[in-house]
């Protein structure tokens, strides 16, 4: 199921201009309201000095008299402070699995994940969000942090094109590093196949519940979803795990395929159940799904984009 050499060499390969034009009109939507570092285009739960009125509260000693609502004082003869929603920028973190297992299938899972990451990052950049990219493999992370504005799209593309899948994922350690080094709250999208020998639970647990609006995009090659498809596996094989090197002798039979599918369904079901319990959006996407369809339909329906 491993694919040929990557064909992505430049920004256009990651994100063509036609899709780019379509993405200009959409924005990243967070189900949560976060506080940011800079005043931006997002509403923040922190009451502040924006123009959008939020609430009143009784005046206490020490409050800034500038925010006292004198009209109410005139009518009620009591001091109330006007509370405003402070508008902040949104932090968008895209975590890309760069372990060796991502290099599989046709279309290639890793290339597809990079194109999705590019599209998501582009949406973030054009909407003036603070975009961070995190590549993780073998427990290490490689970052491209705090990018903002359309002009940074080329930087994002360069960073993505530089990534090559290798080694194991070290998902838990990588997520621990991401979780602890967060720079402001925001939306976090994990792009991975979630085929971790050590399991996904601990890794997701490192970032779940830390304030991120978390999306888990499980990217699988069509041949991984159904090995009996063209380009899948058949016959008597010695299967070698791309990450661990573990060898497994198989004689592919319909019964074995059925068993494989059962296990995959069980794994995806377990991920979905885990995510539901922790308010994480889980979405399985085959690498054959057009990126445009994913961005403009699936992710919109799931509330990530609007």
């Amino acid at each position: 199921m491993s694919s040929a050499q990557p064909t992505l060499r430049k920004l256009d390969d990651l994100l063509d201009s036609r899709l780019m034009a379509k993405l200009d009109g959409i924005d990243v939507m967070s189900r949560k309201i976060f506080s940011g570092k800079l005043q931006g285009e997002r509403r923040s739960r922190r009451r502040g000095q924006s123009v959008e009125f939020a609430d009143f509260r009784p005046y206490v000693h020490g409050d800034d008299l500038r925010f006292v609502d004198w009209n109410i004082f005139g009518r009620l003869d009591r001091l109330f402070l006007k509370m405003f929603l402070e508008e902040e920028d949104l932090s968008l973190i895209i975590a890309l699995d760069t372990s060796a297992s991502m290099r599989s299938g046709s279309p290639d899972t890793f290339d597809y994940a990079r194109r999705v990451a590019m599209a998501l990052a582009y949406v973030g950049l054009v909407n003036q969000h603070r975009v961070s990219l995190v590549g993780f493999s073998q427990g290490r992370v490689e970052r491209a942090s705090n990018l903002r504005g359309r002009r940074k799209a080329a930087d994002v593309a360069q960073w993505l094109l530089r990534q090559q899948p290798e080694g194991g994922s070290g998902f838990e350690e990588a997520m621990r590093l991401v979780g602890t080094a967060r720079q402001g709250r925001g939306v976090m999208i994990v792009l991975s196949d979630f085929l971790f020998p050590e399991g996904f639970e601990k890794g997701l647990g490192m970032v779940a519940g830390r304030g991120f609006d978390l999306f888990a995009l499980q990217v699988l090659a069509p041949q991984v979803v159904d090995p009996s498809r063209e380009g899948g596996i058949h016959g008597d094989l010695l299967l070698v795990d791309a990450e661990t090197g573990v060898e497994t002798e198989v004689t592919v039979t319909p019964e074995l395929i059925r068993l494989y599918r059962e296990r995959l369904d069980r794994l995806c079901g377990a991920i979905r159940a885990y995510c539901t319990r922790r308010d994480i959006v889980h979405l399985v996407v085959e690498s054959s799904t057009p990126v445009e369809t994913l961005m403009l339909e699936y992710l919109r329906r799931r509330g990530l984009l609007r």
Binding site: M1, S101, R103, T109, L195, V240, D241
Partner: peptide, 8 residues
């Protein structure tokens, strides 16, 4: 045959 994962 190298595959992404033999997990399944």
């Amino acid at each position: 045959r190298v595959i992404s994962s033999t997990l399944l």
